[in-house]
């Protein structure tokens, strides 16, 4: 009886896990221009999306209190290291209400890409950031190619950026 219950419990957990994975599937948006923005990052530098035209951009909306975000960030750090020379730029926009925890997190995780604090206006421009994480992949021509809602398998994003990095800007 105990064995049967254990098998049932494992089955339910597996079902839950599968549903969770499916809920994080990307929402393909078509190729619409990424809304322009200009923010000041935590080191005081201006971060304008237009400065990265010609690069492939991963635009990650995250927060320090968001566990799935924390799982993704080490992978973005790795991608920034691995693909920067090919034209990748990761940009982090924190949706935290206060700056100090973001600064602390940035240092703790040794984030190697610009991190700025977002705002509701920017969130609206990107269709509403009403749940985290939300990650946009932007091609070399400044167009959004995909919007990932929820934790996303890093290999999915890596495959997407590899394809985009292989394409020259038009």
């Amino acid at each position: 009886m105990k064995k049967l219950l254990l098998i049932l419990a494992a089955g339910l957990l597996l079902l839950g896990w599968t549903l969770w994975q499916h809920s994080a599937k990307p929402r393909t948006t078509g190729l619409r221009p990424a809304p322009a923005f200009s923010l000041t990052d935590l080191s005081g530098r201006t971060v304008s999306l237009s400065d990265y035209r010609g690069k492939v951009v991963i635009l990650d909306f995250w927060a320090t209190w968001c566990d799935p975000c924390k799982q993704e960030i080490p992978h973005f750090i790795e991608m920034q290291n691995k693909y920067a020379s090919q034209g990748l730029q990761v940009l982090g926009v924190s949706m935290d209400d206060d700056e100090p925890p973001v600064r602390q997190f940035q240092q703790q995780f040794k984030m190697n890409y610009p991190v700025a604090i977002g705002n509701p206006k920017l969130a609206d421009q990107y269709g509403g950031i009403l749940g985290l994480p939300i990650t946009f992949v932007i091609d070399r021509n400044g167009r959004i190619t995909v919007r990932h809602v929820g934790a996303t398998d890093p290999s999915v994003i890596e495959t997407e950026i590899q394809k985009l990095l292989a394409q020259p800007p038009s």
């Binding site: 209190w65 949706m95 935290d96 209400d97 977002g118 509701p120 509403g128 950031i129």
Partner: peptide, 21 residues
């Protein structure tokens, strides 16, 4: 939850009280 989220969209009539965490 998050104030940033509340400002973007919330249930009409609801009050923001700060993150429970």
């Amino acid at each position: 939850g998050s104030h940033m989220l509340y400002v973007q969209a919330h249930i009409p009539g609801s009050e923001y009280l700060g993150a429970g965490s």
